[in-house]
Nucleic acid binder design. Structure first.
Lengths: 314, 314
DNA sequence: GATTCATATAAATTTAATCTATTTTGTCGA
DNA sequence: TCGACAAAATAGATTAAATTTATATGAATC
């Protein structure tokens, strides 16, 4: 049994296709096929069921694949240890960021980080929270930035900052004359939401559910960006909620349409999350430091009410 | 990097000698030397300092060796998974047992186990608790039976039974006329102890320390076996404490010299302990089941006061 | 039933691991 | 400081294993 064989198995498990898996592993298809067969022979059981299309993983195979992933990850940590010993912070580092954090946070730290750690090639991907969790597990991402708490056993959450929710209210809206808004004043039917799949959407729904109201709304306008949402509000189609950092980019006219919540304001907790195995943890630490430093000036809310990013049925 | 190379590194780390390590790995010395060198080249750092005798492990090497052990153990679990899938319970299984449990517990379960699982070759070693912990960590033992709780992070403790302490008191001793003994009646100066290194000795000391008394005794007779201790008591040199199972082998005359403790009696917790990684866990489970079943009839104390096997300064 | 896509097999080639034999290095005692 | 010894490194030959190209087989699709 070799680490290479295990890597081949992982590739097949992922792509469900020997040819593609071979390509991704930078070897020819027979090479990969034979090595996988060899391992199966050695273990005396089938990992893959080639009689199906796409290729299926056998029941036993599932467990072996999981353990193989484990071993390959642990093996990767050796390089990690070496890098740390040498004080080398470099290589490719893949970071996932949720869509509602991406446009505001990224510009804040990207330049600083790349200047401070020129040897690290940062690859940044915009992904949903669910996708991020999956990709962190599979090792396709080194870390992610998402709203927490998620409470995923295999992941570590390191809070970066707390970002309050701010209401954006059109002229003539019942909340326009309010000073500070109480969360009980919110009415979900009246709030424009992001489309499904955004955790910020779920956060808002959780927040509104604080007032006893059923979730089945008659009709709802939804969009994928706050930009659109703000425009819809301007058209008088309802109000919306924005994360604090997004409100900083609004022009002065729109700033006046913002309404803040009573203390402690509802907020989302934005964290750096990564696998417990802490691959490339020296880069993760560096990243966390840079972001924390840059964020410290812009957004320093302490006394907030954290809203869960996960849809809650209560 | 291959698993084989990591195994070679572990062998050298253990034996501090390339030649011996090669022998234990069933390869020639140049083979092992070259593979270790190759790995060092690949990683770009020295794992071993050959300029010393015996060979030293470098600072970085220490961390790499630890991780290598981790990887090799995880790799071994693949076989484990396969065995479980196939319902195969077999192979060599090395069990450590502390000296004060060995002679009484072993005869109780050994025959049953080997009959029920003929494909398992049980290798049983008598070791101290400290040695057991070390050997479990290094993977030289698959499991151990010892007094608990130990509170070792990397080990799992699965209690098997609770074994009360019983006093063995000579004729004319102040406790001879007692009915049930209270622990405050004990006086450490008066109690014959096992020699240093036995956790039962520490348990007894802990028990006696319950009464406020200094630990520095003027003179103390000590022995490595209860057999000797009992004989010394018969000679009138003091009393002693025995674990319950040991009292069952005493002849009738000696049985009459036993004095039990008041409820709940002080007792030691005897557990099956093994590494969190749970290598060969199907055998471990089988072993636990067999022992639990056999012990259930002989020793079923529930309401006991567990005495720590670790020396406590309090 | 021909076509296509995917995996398996065969044979040749390259690469890597291991062995035997020998040299170098380091340690220890005279 | 000099052998003498033990242990590790190196060299060259051998064996084993991984990988490649080329080709065959097999299952799904129309």
């Amino acid at each position: 049994m070799t680490i290479t064989q295990l890597q081949y198995v992982l590739a097949v498990a992922e792509h469900r296709n020997f040819t593609l898996a071979a390509e991704k592993s930078f070897v020819t298809q027979p090479t990969l096929s034979m090595q996988v067969q060899k391992l199966e022979d050695e273990l005396g059981l089938q990992i893959f069921d080639r009689g199906k299309k796409p290729i299926a993983i056998t029941e036993a195979g599932r467990k072996i694949v999981d353990q193989a992933r484990n071993i390959v990850q642990e093996a990767a940590r050796i390089r990690d240890i070496v890098d740390q010993e040498k004080g080398f912070v470099g290589g490719t580092y893949t970071l996932g960021v949720i869509p509602t954090v991406m446009p505001t946070l990224l510009p804040m730290f990207l330049k600083t980080f790349t200047q401070k750690y020129p040897k690290v090639r940062l690859v940044i991907k915009e992904v949903s929270t669910e996708r991020m969790i999956e990709d962190l597990r599979e090792g396709h991402l080194d870390a992610g930035i998402a709203a927490t708490p998620l409470g995923i056993e295999s992941l570590v959450e390191r809070p970066l900052y707390y970002e309050p929710f701010v209401a954006y209210v059109p002229h003539g809206h019942r909340l326009e004359k309010s000073g500070k808004i109480g969360r009980e004043e919110l009415d979900l039917e009246d709030v424009l939401l992001l489309e499904d799949g955004h955790c910020f959407r779920d956060g808002v729904i959780n927040l509104c559910q604080a007032i006893p109201r059923t979730e089945d709304m008659p009709f709802q306008l939804e969009s994928g960006s706050f930009e659109t949402l703000v425009n819809l509000v301007d058209e008088g189609l309802g109000m919306t909620l924005l994360p604090y950092l997004h409100t900083m980019g609004l022009d002065e006219k729109r700033q006046r349409m913002l309404r803040y919540f009573q203390d402690p304001p509802p907020a989302r907790e934005v964290s750096l999350i990564y696998h417990k195995k802490e691959l490339k943890y020296q880069i993760t630490e560096a990243l966390k430091e840079v972001i924390a430093a840059v964020v410290r000036g812009a957004i320093a809310f302490q006394d907030v009410q954290i809203v869960s990013p996960k849809r809650q049925m209560a």
